Simulated scan of single mutants.
Amino acid sequence: MSKPELRITYCTQCNWLLRSAWMAAEVLTTFGLEIGAVILVPGTGDIFEISLDGELTWERRRDGGFPDVKALKQLVRDRIDPGRDLGHIDSHGKAG
């Protein structure tokens, strides 16, 4: 079974490369063994999209800005390893 691929498409005109690279590094740090690839795709026209295995999971205009690291890691986790505990990221606001 192949590992999932995360694709971040970012606007070069808006200088969102560093934000995208930082998000990619965070995903790879947390899911280094579970994810097959993180791909940065340069674009234009105010675009910022994150897709996982071809399914759009975050779109800046649709979802109201950029995801914070917590939201991004939870989106990835919920798709590739739903039972996984993300430690301190999951501890805030958890009923229990």
Rank of each mutant, 00 (worst) to 15 (best):
T44E: 07
S2G: 01
W58S: 01
A37S: 08
T29P: 08
R79T: 03
D85T: 12
D81P: 08
I80Q: 00
R19V: 08
G87F: 13
G32K: 04
L6E: 09
G87W: 00
R61Q: 15
V41L: 10
R19H: 12
L52C: 01
A95H: 00
A71S: 02
G36P: 03
L72E: 01
D46P: 08
K94W: 11
R77H: 11
G54V: 00
R19Y: 12
G36W: 01
G87N: 04
A25C: 09
L56F: 10
V41F: 01
I50F: 06
E59R: 14
A37W: 04
F66Y: 07
E26V: 11
Q13S: 02
Y10R: 05
A24K: 15
I39C: 03
L56N: 10
R60D: 13
K3M: 14
S20E: 10
S20N: 03
M1A: 07
G32H: 13
L18T: 15
L52H: 02
R84Y: 03
W58V: 03
A21H: 10
A21D: 06
D53H: 02
M23I: 08
L40C: 00
R19N: 13
C14D: 07
I47A: 04
A24R: 02
M1W: 00
G93S: 10
R77V: 03
L18S: 12
R7C: 10
K70A: 13
P82Q: 06
K73P: 01
I39T: 14
I47H: 09
D81E: 14
S51C: 04
T12L: 07
L28I: 12
E26L: 09
R62L: 13
D85P: 04
I47T: 06
I47R: 05
W22Q: 05
V41P: 00
T9C: 06
L18E: 15
I50W: 09
T57K: 13
D68G: 05
L56V: 11
G43Y: 02
D85L: 10
Q74S: 12
A71Q: 04
L86H: 07
A71G: 05
P42S: 00
T29A: 14
V76F: 06
D63T: 02
W58A: 04
H88W: 13
A25H: 05
G36D: 01
E34V: 04
I47G: 03
